[in-house]
Computed example of a mutant assay.
Amino acid sequence: MFRVSNNLVGILNFVTFLLSVPILGAGIWLSRQATSECERFLEKPVIALGVFLMLVSLAGLIGACCRVSWLLWVYLLVMFLLIVLLFCFTIFAFVVTNKGAGEVVSQRGYKEYRLGDYSNWLQKRVNSNKNWNKIRSCLEDSKVCQSLIDDGSNTPVDQFYQEHLTAIQSGCCKPSNDCNFTYVSPTNWTVTSSTSANPDCNTWNNDPTILCFNCQSCKAGLLDNIKSDWKKVAVVNVIFLIFLIVVYSIGCCAFRNNREDNDWKRYP
Rank of each mutant, 00 (worst) to 15 (best):
A197T: 12
N129V: 06
F255R: 01
P208G: 11
S142F: 05
F80H: 06
T195N: 10
W204C: 07
I83E: 08
T35Q: 15
A254E: 05
T35A: 15
N120K: 09
N133T: 09
V233N: 07
L223M: 13
V78E: 05
N214W: 04
Q33M: 01
T187R: 00
E163K: 14
S31N: 11
F14Q: 07
S228M: 10
V235I: 14
A59M: 12
S69L: 13
L115N: 07
N131S: 12
S228I: 13
L122N: 10
D158A: 13
G102M: 09
V126I: 07
L76V: 13
V9K: 04
S153M: 14
Y161D: 15
P186C: 03
L71C: 12
S119E: 11
V233E: 03
G152E: 06
M1T: 14
V144Q: 02
C66F: 14
L71M: 15
F80A: 15
N131R: 03
K231Q: 00
G102P: 06
F14Y: 14
C145L: 13
V233W: 10
S142T: 01
A64S: 04
G100S: 09
E43D: 10
V15G: 15
N120L: 01
S137E: 06
W70L: 15
S20Y: 01
K44N: 12
D224H: 13
V21D: 04
R114D: 02
V246E: 00
S249M: 12
Q159D: 10
Y118D: 07
I23R: 05
R40P: 05
V68W: 03
Q33N: 01
Y118E: 10
V235P: 01
S69N: 15
Q216P: 07
A93D: 01
N258Y: 00
S128N: 14
S142C: 05
Y110A: 11
K134S: 11
L55P: 08
G171E: 05
V157Y: 13
P268F: 15
G251T: 01
V4L: 06
G171W: 03
T166D: 06
Q169K: 02
G25S: 10
R266M: 13
S194L: 09
Q159S: 12
K124I: 07
A101T: 15
S153P: 08
K174A: 07
Y161R: 14
